[in-house]
Design a protein around this nucleic acid. Sequence first.
DNA 1: AAATGTCTGTTCAACTTCTGTACAATGAAC
DNA 2: GTTCATTGTACAGAAGTTGAACAGACATTT
Lengths: 293, 293
Amino acid sequence: MNLMEAASGYLQIGELSRRSGVSTELLRAWERRYGLLRPARSEGGFRLYSPQDERRVTVMRNHLERGLSAAQAARLTLEEAERRPDEAPALARGIESLRDALDALDETAAHTALDRLLSDFSVETVLGEVVLPYLHELGERWARGEASVADEHFASNLLRGRLLGLARGWDGGSGPRALLACAPGEQHDLALIVFGLVLRELGWRITFLGPDTPLDTLDDATRTLEPAAVVIAASSPERIAGDEVSLRKLARNAPLWIAGAGASSVVGKKTGARQLDGDPLGAAALVARAQRE
Amino acid sequence: MNLMEAASGYLQIGELSRRSGVSTELLRAWERRYGLLRPARSEGGFRLYSPQDERRVTVMRNHLERGLSAAQAARLTLEEAERRPDEAPALARGIESLRDALDALDETAAHTALDRLLSDFSVETVLGEVVLPYLHELGERWARGEASVADEHFASNLLRGRLLGLARGWDGGSGPRALLACAPGEQHDLALIVFGLVLRELGWRITFLGPDTPLDTLDDATRTLEPAAVVIAASSPERIAGDEVSLRKLARNAPLWIAGAGASSVVGKKTGARQLDGDPLGAAALVARAQRE
DNA sequence: AAATGTCTGTTCAACTTCTGTACAATGAAC
DNA sequence: GTTCATTGTACAGAAGTTGAACAGACATTT
């Protein structure tokens, strides 16, 4: 790295190319064709890329990897860069007021914050950018002993109410049906509700049996409804670990998925169940893709 | 995948084909034959599919799998897409479907839209972000001659019914009492009902005397109920302009507020009445604050 | 001065998509 | 049985898109 780069944090095209894995020719082409980058220039005319430019290249590559055409990827990258100063703070503010309200056990303020968010952003955005991050954070604070049981209950109940409100009518329509339930003893249903909402957006009909569902109840429902997917949420292995036989029976009647930290112990050939990890958004996409095949 | 990004990411036909499992030829055929998709075009003429298009393909496939013919499936898909225009923030979507329903004099659809809104949002949000803006817009269209008397009556009556439904039990509880009435000759009570609902949310008990209330009736009620506030709605000055004496008498027995465009001519020291201007939400907050002092 | 890196502008080849037409399989209508 | 519309698929030739390459001039470093 030369002096200019070291001092200012600016990169020449070669170094940016090495870091990003995009050839120098292509970096110039993206600049010329889509205006993706606006590097400053040295006295001699060399391009000097800022850290923001570097991030744009990363974002551009991510979009390309998802299958967008170069032109679309560039447009989207620029749009996001444009929008970031506007939308991101609004979302951040929303998250903050929601957290403050929930921490203060202030129901009215929490609803107001959610009203605000849902009026400004789509349901998917609110779920993915606010609700899930908040639940994650709450879980971590609870694990560290920073959040009380009361906090956790209050927030869960309030959010559950709102999410179930959004879920109204989610079993209507004509798409494939998914049967959702929490494993026996499992009380945490929020992430599963979010998962159902996202799957609903993908055109599915959702039947939700709620927390603490006995496996034979689930089996009955499976025979009746003949769903295209059955999803069981289990936050720890012991919820279902002893019940491989029931699971195997379930998996014979419908594609069976186990979600949550308790999944890994029972998935596989023994039970015929498949694992759903990661966030509810990605999980929903995965289930939908599997159904199409 | 970040759903917010996906919201504006346009796909070319090849990528949509890979994701949906429908061949490119067939995608084009569905567009040509049934108008199933309406992709935008790039400068060079390439089809650019929106996430809504992607969802339509999913729905179309669902219908086909259930044995419908392609033509029927497409027709159904288009109908459903018409009914469920997603992606927009929930509140904006709600406003639009309410307006569409009221403009079409479609009572069922209007109630459905309101149900949806009230299940997704708090009463105050629905009032402030939907009902009041709609009434305002309707008033303007009426002034420009774009809305007929029938439109205005239909919308008013339907909304009045819903609002009074929300108002059920609003005189119960233990908070301060407000006495609400429209001035003599005044028929427009909707904004006053909204005002009452918001005040109710703030913990007040509401007594509502309705449109066209004689001032001496109001005076009787004031002596009986001893309210913490009396609010008179008057959309034009002549409703009350000649009655300063009655107003003065009223104001001696309870804090008196005059709301609406007719207020300014009579407020002040002469009558002891105070003005309430602006929107009902702000007005309610103002009355509540005044009472606390 | 030599070596290396970067500049602009142009060209190219691989790939994708476009439009339009054609065709085979299916099943309903006559 | 024949006719006909429906529907998924196939192909040809033109055009759009995009990553890569090259040439000749200039910049920077050693």
